[in-house]
Write a protein that binds this DNA or RNA. Structure first.
Lengths: 151, 151
DNA sequence: CTTGATGCAAAGCATTTGCACCACA
DNA sequence: TGTGGTGCAAATGCTTTGCATCAAG
């Protein structure tokens, strides 16, 4: 896994190459996603950053703008859930898919070589030039099943 | 594949069991999805129905309400795309997944036994009680690739 | 007749945009 | 210093809701 200073450097380079500026807000968002390996909505990130850094001013619009920028640069990735909206996570780890508990919203990541291979084969079969793929398994997680039994 | 009269009967039963009413609007939407085996946004359905049946009054709210009802009843299913929004299709056929062309928006359906099996195995491994699963492969379809070459 | 359904317009909600001001480079 | 970034508030776009009226049972 890439270290934070490395990631920061990568981000700064990317900004420089596109004559964009490095700002406190952009760094905060990047750092937040690096330090919190989970899935967050833009709103989540906005609220938590405001809370953790009362000294720094940040607007929700900047969070949206930065997340879009980071996603285009392949530094973060997003998945969208029905009601829960779109959530972002650092996108530097190996490609993976998600198990989502529809009761508590918990997200479990997994990687399955067989599925990856089949996806490639299917894209090829239809002469599709694959640019991305997502898989979501929805269900009830272990904990929520137990809770249901207790009731 | 189920015939339309059968489907209609099934829908009517379902309404009766829940003391809901059978209306022209509900039938129109069901019929539309039966006759047009494709993926539509609520807006699409609303516009096309108004166009095809200028005599019958229908509001966008009713389309949303009916689609929600049909989806809860497992008669239709939906997939959501990034910018293109949520699209509905008749959900009575065998479970399948989608290839989506990010250029022209075309959707190709496919079914892969290996992937289905692996998904079940994964859910089991994490003690997840699977209630649903979706897979989307994004890319550029054959036609759009050719177009790109011509430019 | 009773109850649920409908259309309309208003309200919601997440996301985007315009703009004057601010801060990197 | 100039250019791009920011926060704010207004605007947008999709979806839901409240309500008076309508129609199915």
């Amino acid at each position: 896994m890439i270290s934070y200073p490395e990631l920061l450097e990568k981000f700064k380079d990317l900004l420089k190459c596109n004559s964009l500026k490095f700002t406190k807000q952009r760094e905060l968002i990047l750092k937040f996603l690096y330090e919190n390996e989970d899935h967050y909505t833009p709103e989540d990130i906005y609220m938590l950053l405001k809370q953790q850094h009362p000294d720094i001013n940040i607007g929700i619009a900047t969070v949206y703008r930065t997340l879009t920028l980071l996603e285009e640069s392949k530094i973060v990735s997003s998945i969208s859930f029905g009601i829960q909206g779109k959530k972002y996570e650092l996108g530097l780890k190996k490609h993976h898919d998600h198990l989502i508990c529809t009761k508590c919203g918990d997200i479990i990541e997994f990687y399955d070589e067989t599925i990856e291979k089949r996806q490639e084969a299917i894209a090829e079969k239809f002469n599709f030039k694959m640019t991305g793929h997502t898989m979501k398994i929805e269900g009830i997680c272990e904990d929520c099943q137990e809770e249901a039994l207790e009731e």
